[in-house]
Design a protein around this nucleic acid. Structure first.
Lengths: 143, 143
DNA sequence: ATGATTTTCGTCATTATGACGATATTTTCG
DNA sequence: CGAAAATATCGTCATAATGACGAAAATCAT
């Protein structure tokens, strides 16, 4: 993970569909160098994959929410497994702090979001849940 | 936004570096059709961009945190502007619920993370802040 | 220093891209 | 309904990018 790797990550973080050839010209190295570097970054698990960022036009039909959960930690693994089985659950993180798990949820409609939030809140082992519905995204420069 | 568009989004969501040609073969339409569709999805703002997902190998050297803020809503715009100026702030969302803003923060070290959290917490107009440091990512199928 | 290992480079055959005119399909409205 | 207009899809060029791989350069260990 030297400077060249970092630059590759930064450029692809900005536009993951950049061609190897263009990237190589920008970084002023041979195309095959970038190709080798990228293969290594992928195979060593530095890069987990490539995805797209939806714009406002698409987010309009997508309600999102963040949920804080405190749970019975003895059955955390079980809870995580059951959360994964819910389609709208997009991210699950364990945290240090007042809560144990942090979820990010997406649903196509308020009704559906409500259904998911209920399902999560009433799951066995979930002691408390608090949810925050996303209104507008003011910034998103997620890597 | 018909079914073909949705399929294009789904495939590129899974792997944003798929070539147009491969994508077209998978969807069994002409490559130029996918090309035209994709150009439209991009120009109409359905797709905001393409980015990469970092794997555990890269996340190891990246501390992340979620922060809940209640603020003086009269100067929300100003606060958002100042938050954007902080390098580690990756996402800012306004929310309905007990808090006003939800931040996602990333830093290369605990010291740096602490510095950012302090800077945010002591910002003028911020009434209260609560932060949750991410320990492990149990699931990430963010679109 | 020198042999081993890793990294970078150049190049070939194959495949993908951008551009665009030609069909086909859908929409509009008399 | 049915013809004109507008969209969408397709096929096909010339150009560019990719994957593969051997050769040259740089780095590392002893």
């Amino acid at each position: 993970m030297d400077d060249l790797d970092a630059q590759i990550l930064r450029h692809l973080g900005g536009d993951a569909r950049l061609s190897l050839a263009v990237l190589a010209r920008r970084l002023k190295v041979a195309r095959s160098t970038v190709q080798a570097r990228l293969e290594r970054l992928e195979s060593t698990g530095v890069i987990a994959g490539y995805t797209l960022k939806l714009g406002e036009a698409a987010r309009a039909s997508r309600l999102q929410a963040t949920v804080l959960l405190t749970i019975d930690l003895r059955i955390q693994a079980q809870i995580v497994t059951r959360l994964k089985a819910i389609a709208g659950v997009e991210r699950i993180m364990s945290t240090s702090g007042r809560v144990d798990l942090l979820l990010q949820i997406a649903a196509p409609s308020p009704v559906e979001l409500d259904r998911i939030l209920d399902a999560v809140g009433e799951m066995a082992g979930v002691r408390s849940s608090e949810s925050f519905i996303h209104l507008t995204t003011k910034l998103d420069r997620t890597v």
